[in-house]
């Protein structure tokens, strides 16, 4: 554990909680891509199956349970409880365009051709692109609520902090995981355009809106 890893995890947790609270407090999931949230639930489910096979630490187990629980709670709020507010027409990204290629890649490029390892690899690749339906939705509507941009900021910050974590671990522990690093770099790059808009607009008190 190092400071980048810890702040990365906390940033990830902050993003998840911000989204849940936003939906709960406003009683609405307008502007939120349910498809991205389904992908994140799938990511956590396929990655954390090792909860059943190996114990790493109390911290590790608790965080995994919180992430999975929150992911399913978010999907429940969007598709069940506040379904009437879900903006399905603008959430038109085709999930199979992500899930199928990512599944194929996970079978081809992995550390070990075993069931759990392939699911872990699938989850790593899928996470790197899971935000695309949300970004696609924002580009379609041309705007995002400020609270939604805070969610995206913390979600992007989490993976950026993990990059520093991996640099740290390489130098001080000799540890590196090429699959996680490459996917993490891709994931972080996807947020760069958003980070730019967040700093130049949202942090200056303006709403995030894209030019027509």
């Amino acid at each position: 554990m190092n400071i980048f890893r810890l702040t990365g995890d906390l940033s990830h947790l902050a993003a998840i909680i911000i989204l849940l609270l936003k939906i709960w407090k406003t009683r609405s999931c307008a502007g939120i891509s349910g498809k991205s949230q389904i992908l994140f639930a799938l990511v956590f489910t396929t990655r954390y199956l090792d909860l059943l096979t190996s114990f790493i630490s109390f911290y590790n187990t608790i965080m995994k349970l919180i992430y999975i629980g929150c992911a399913y709670a978010t999907v429940y709020l969007i598709y069940m409880k506040f379904k009437a507010t879900y903006d399905g027409n603008h959430d038109s990204f085709r999930l199979e365009f992500l899930v199928v290629p990512v599944g194929g890649l996970a079978c081809l490029v992995n550390h070990d051709f075993s069931f759990l390892e392939i699911l872990w690899t699938f989850s790593i690749y899928l996470e790197s692109v899971a935000i695309l339906p949300q970004l696609f939705m924002i580009s379609k509507t041309g705007e995002a609520e400020t609270i939604t941009t805070h969610y995206l900021f913390f979600l992007g910050l989490y993976r950026a902090l993990y990059l520093f974590n991996w640099i740290w671990r390489f130098y001080f522990e000799g540890f590196f995981d090429m699959i996680a690093i490459v996917a993490g770099v891709v994931q972080t790059i996807l947020y760069c355009d958003f980070f730019y808009l967040y700093v130049t607009k949202v942090l200056k008190g303006k709403k995030l809106s894209l030019p027509a």
Partner: peptide
């Protein structure tokens, strides 16, 4: 390169 007991990162 892979942890023997699974992946410690989240």
């Amino acid at each position: 390169l892979k942890d023997e007991v699974g992946h410690d990162e989240l």
